[in-house]
Design a protein around this nucleic acid. Structure first.
Lengths: 198, 198
DNA sequence: CAAAGAGCGTAGACACTGTCTACTCGGCTT
DNA sequence: AAGCCGAGTAGACAGTGTCTACGCTCTTTG
């Protein structure tokens, strides 16, 4: 919306996002993206030196979308930090389970290891939000807020991954993520003693 | 040890394990494995109908090794369930961080989705150990032991993943996993009130 | 106004991949 | 001794990512 950018560069990214959403990650070959964009297989090279660079650009779009959904779920803070964290966790899980191909692409190790993704710009601010919410939801342990936030993030991420490919369903013997989400939040924030109960 | 199995089938698996350990997952092409095993590229087909089947066999080896290390770390139970869980978590993390290529291979979604891995036979017993330890470490909430164990597993797995490619180091701003491991255990088992208290 | 140039995309080659099929070769059974 | 069958070879095929040489079109410039 902000930038029309009708150029080929953005079109390749858009095609990639659509492709990974509808067909999954294995269909994100350089030549297939070029084909769907209606250009020859050599064209992307002008904008992305390598296939991995194009994939990284697509993944960045995913991180942007995730950040947006999480930010919207967190809201303005009128709900209180605990409910905000619950909404954050739910948004994270819903994104991961609703955009499985994109989520898989985003956390490919070979993309993350090179700093092509620029996580410092996209994801770190998101993590700071998490740290802040944790610090406000657990005012007691202030110094450890970063560690708790890190563990909580890892927990959400692990649930998203393991649930995504069915391992957790098999192990816990259920088909509802909600109990796992609740258990995760309660583990890191302490048991609920707010107005909500049951 | 139990089976010599000097046949080509087991040799291919062995070569694959060595290869993924030393060179990483991207070097696990069918032809490269065959090359290192000293046979033609068509030979593996006699034992593994497809490349994915060979990869799955290699990954199974990984799951076996992980199960063995975890079982050894858990020990015979003289240490008490809480220390056992700590040892389990540490073993899981050490395996993931020490065998990164193998760990990545083991949790590839396209391997997990097909039931080629036979996780019901290899990993589910391991999870039952976890459930049992959780139930004994938290005798209060007995019915939720499965859910807590699932959340704890997800937490360990998430820490392993995110730490493995450096995201957590960046976020939490540390270079030691130990605090994250401690936070994970304490979150799901409650604060330590044992003899140790540093 | 014509010519030079730069930006952008095309097209083919190369090495590599996974899969399929036809073939060969050695040891066993009958 | 003859036939057969397991086991591995070798080549073909479509597809991939990268590289290079080549056009086309539009703009700038002499």
């Amino acid at each position: 919306m902000s930038e029309q950018e009708t150029g080929l560069r953005s079109r390749l990214i858009e095609v990639g996002v659509d492709l990974v959403t509808s067909e999954g990650m294995q269909s994100l070959s350089l030549r297939e993206i070029a084909r769907r964009a209606g250009v020859s297989h050599g064209a992307p090279r002008r904008y992305f030196p390598t296939h991995l660079d194009l994939l990284s650009a697509i993944a960045r779009q995913g991180f942007g979308a995730l950040a947006a959904e999480v930010a919207e779920a967190v809201g303005d803070g009128r709900a209180g930090p605990r409910d905000q964290l619950m909404a954050l966790g739910r948004a994270y899980l819903e994104f991961a389970l609703g955009n499985r191909g994109m989520f898989e692409l985003m956390f490919r190790h070979d993309l993350l290891e090179s700093d092509r993704l620029g996580l410092r710009d996209t994801s770190l601010p998101l993590f700071e939000v998490l740290v802040d919410l944790v610090a406000r939801a657990r005012p007691a342990a202030d110094a450890e807020a970063r560690v708790v936030a890190g563990a909580l993030w890892a927990n959400l991420h692990g649930v998203a991954q393991l649930w995504g490919w069915g391992s957790l369903q098999l192990a816990v013997a259920t088909d509802d993520v909600e109990p796992l989400l609740r258990a995760t939040l309660e583990a890191h924030l302490g048991p609920t003693r707010g107005p909500e109960e049951g």
